[in-house]
Computed example of a mutant assay.
Amino acid sequence: MKKVTGIGGIFFKCKDPKAINEWYKTHLGFDTTPYGTSFEWRQSDDSTKKGLTQWNPFAENTKYFEPSAKDFMINYRVENLEALVEELRKENVTIVDKIETYDYGKFVHILDIEGNKIQLWEPHD
């Protein structure tokens, strides 16, 4: 069973998300919105299919990364999230919440052995 297929996003805390968005727009050419930016790419096994990697700065006081105390969270792209979550449960991995489904994919959060919160995403590319 293939587990992670790539990085879906990089999320990090900062003092001023708006200023960070502007800095990256000005100096590195990011096409930012209040939610960061999306990097579009083509899938290697089928170049007609697009994929996205999200980049998001969050306010330093966000609760979104909890229960992790870290200043970052990585989103990993996966296939068959339900099957993966069942396998992770059997391996005694901490599952933080329930799988949620949106029009752009399914999500769940887990913790690694150092308490880093990880977001798993099965996208609808």
Rank of each mutant, 00 (worst) to 15 (best):
Y104G: 01
T33P: 04
F12Y: 10
E91M: 06
N56M: 12
T33A: 02
L81D: 06
D71N: 14
K3D: 15
G29I: 09
I99P: 02
L88T: 08
V85R: 09
E40H: 04
F72K: 07
E40Y: 11
K18I: 00
K50R: 12
S68E: 11
F72H: 12
L84T: 03
N116S: 13
W41A: 15
T5V: 15
E100R: 02
L111G: 04
N61R: 09
E66H: 15
E122S: 07
S68G: 15
F39Y: 13
L88E: 03
E40F: 14
L88Y: 09
I118M: 09
S44Q: 06
G8L: 01
L111V: 05
V78A: 02
E86I: 05
R89N: 14
Y64L: 13
I113P: 08
Y24G: 05
N92E: 09
N116Y: 15
R89S: 11
F30V: 01
Y104A: 04
S68K: 13
W121C: 07
D125Y: 03
G9N: 08
E122T: 01
W23I: 11
Q43V: 05
T94D: 02
V78E: 01
D71L: 08
H27W: 00
L52R: 10
I20A: 10
E87W: 02
E86C: 00
E87S: 13
F107C: 02
E114N: 13
P67I: 10
V93C: 08
N75F: 00
K50T: 13
Y76N: 08
F72R: 03
F58P: 07
E100F: 00
E22V: 06
I10L: 12
N75V: 05
K70T: 13
L111W: 04
E86P: 03
K50Y: 07
L52A: 08
Y64E: 11
D45M: 03
P34W: 02
N75D: 15
T62K: 12
Q54W: 07
T37L: 12
T26I: 04
T53L: 10
K2F: 07
K2A: 14
E60Y: 13
I10C: 09
F39W: 08
T101R: 05
D112H: 10
K49H: 05
R77G: 02
D112V: 14
K18V: 02
Y104D: 09
A69V: 13
H124N: 15
N75W: 01
D71K: 15
N56L: 06
Y35Q: 12
L28K: 08
D103A: 04
F107S: 03
P123M: 00
I7R: 03
E79R: 10
M73G: 03
D97R: 04
A19S: 05
D125H: 07
K63L: 14
I118L: 13
G51R: 03
V96Y: 03
L28M: 12
A69K: 14
S68D: 08
F107G: 06
H109M: 10
I118Y: 00
K117V: 12
T5R: 08
